[in-house]
């Protein structure tokens, strides 16, 4: 689903940060920002909530740990008990390395997969970036399809905060 937005282009992250804070303070409908790299302080400026990805990671890690322990218990105690050096079949120390590795592996893979799914970065999906935001421009997008959008107020505010250019554009997300 694409959105029609009013984009202001800035030439430094400081101006973008100031403009974003001002836009939210002025109750403008901020859609998103597009930057060449992660800008420190932007999550506060945008008022983003804390990512829920950590909970996905935690749950996946727990799942990995439980599956590793059950797999090892089943194979070495229930299904095919082998006497290794006279140790008990159910030996916690021997299970530690595999449990650790599977916890990390499954937590890592599931977190990355969840991130790609949630942000819809998948094979076959293509989206065009705004011009130069992967290089040296910092873009602030104001949503136009809401009632409180006022084109003159929005472009005026962005120009006041150092936007080198403002234009209407369509973004995929």
């Amino acid at each position: 689903m694409s959105h029609k937005v009013l984009v202001g282009y800035f030439d430094s992250e400081d101006r973008l940060l100031a403009a974003t804070r001002a836009a939210r303070a002025a109750n403008l409908p901020v859609h998103d920002v597009y930057t060449p790299y992660a800008v420190h302080g932007m999550e506060e400026a945008l008022g983003l909530r804390h990512s829920r990805l950590t909970w996905v990671c935690f749950a996946a890690g727990l799942f990995g740990l439980l599956s590793a322990v059950s797999l090892q218990y089943f194979t070495s105690v229930v299904s095919w008990p082998l006497n290794v050096g006279g140790k008990p079949f159910n030996s916690a120390p021997a299970f530690v390395p595999v449990s650790f590795e599977l916890t990390v592996l499954i937590a890592g893979l599931v977190t990355v997969a969840a991130f790609f799914l949630r942000s819809w970065v998948l094979p076959g999906v293509s989206a065009h970036a705004l011009p130069r935001v992967t290089n040296d421009r910092f873009a602030l997008a104001i949503a136009t399809e809401v009632a409180r959008f006022d084109p003159d107020e929005a472009s005026g505010l962005m120009r006041r905060h150092g936007a080198v250019e403002t234009e209407l554009a369509e973004v995929a997300r």
Partner: peptide
């Protein structure tokens, strides 16, 4: 800790 313990425990 586990690296030290595990190898000693295994080798016995």
């Amino acid at each position: 800790w586990i690296s030290q313990y595990l190898l000693i425990w295994y080798a016995n």
